[in-house]
Design a protein around this nucleic acid. Structure first.
Lengths: 96, 96
DNA sequence: ATTTTATATGATTACTCGCTCATATGTCAA
DNA sequence: TTGACATATGAGCGAGTAATCATATAAAAT
């Protein structure tokens, strides 16, 4: 049985994942489909290392899943939840 | 005309506001109604100063509005948007 | 087997952010 | 107008975090 405070902590963690520009850009990209690390890195114009670090965060919080294909590892959104919340936040933040 | 990156920045700012436990507890409280600073302070068991600092952030980002009544200043949610997003995040974070 | 390519990860650093303390501002009462 | 109460705010500190650099792991190619 979770306490009210624990539930708010879970909520906080979810929003924290979404409160970074790099991660949001990744999510926005992954909404479009499945991409490997170097594709993400090139698309966002960021180093392979920082992309990998952020992807690890998204993996650890169950936002994305991976699939290996040879040397490449392909990332995609784990489910539609994050997509829904992202789009809702996006719309609200930009409708004014 | 906003660029795609600017829109993501706006989205990031919105989620950033929601990515703190104290602010989430405040929002959860203000969903219930209108409260003055000391009421919020007592309810959350936090100092008047930290509450005021966080309320300033919520004011500056148009999440809450204020109303003075004598020595007290009453805070309430500015619109239903934040409430909707908060509840969606809350539900998603806690449904598993 | 060695090299090349793709990805992951530990350590370091610079920066951000939330709390606390002290103090300022504002309102009302005596 | 002085004091008490309510709120706001600036400075400083400590904790967390995102990018970088260097290096490790893993798969494929030669």
């Amino acid at each position: 049985m979770k306490t009210s405070l624990q539930r708010i902590q879970e909520t906080m963690k979810l929003f924290k994942i979404l409160s970074d520009q790099t991660r949001l850009r990744m999510i926005a990209l992954l909404i479009e489909g499945e991409f490997c690390v170097q594709e993400i890195s090139e698309t966002l114009h960021m180093s392979q290392s920082s992309i990998s670090h952020q992807l690890k965060l998204l993996r650890d919080t169950n936002v994305v899943k991976t699939r290996r294909e040879g040397k490449n590892i392909f990332y995609s959104l784990k489910d539609e939840h994050i997509k829904t919340i992202y789009q809702m936040g996006y719309d609200h933040a930009n409708e004014c």
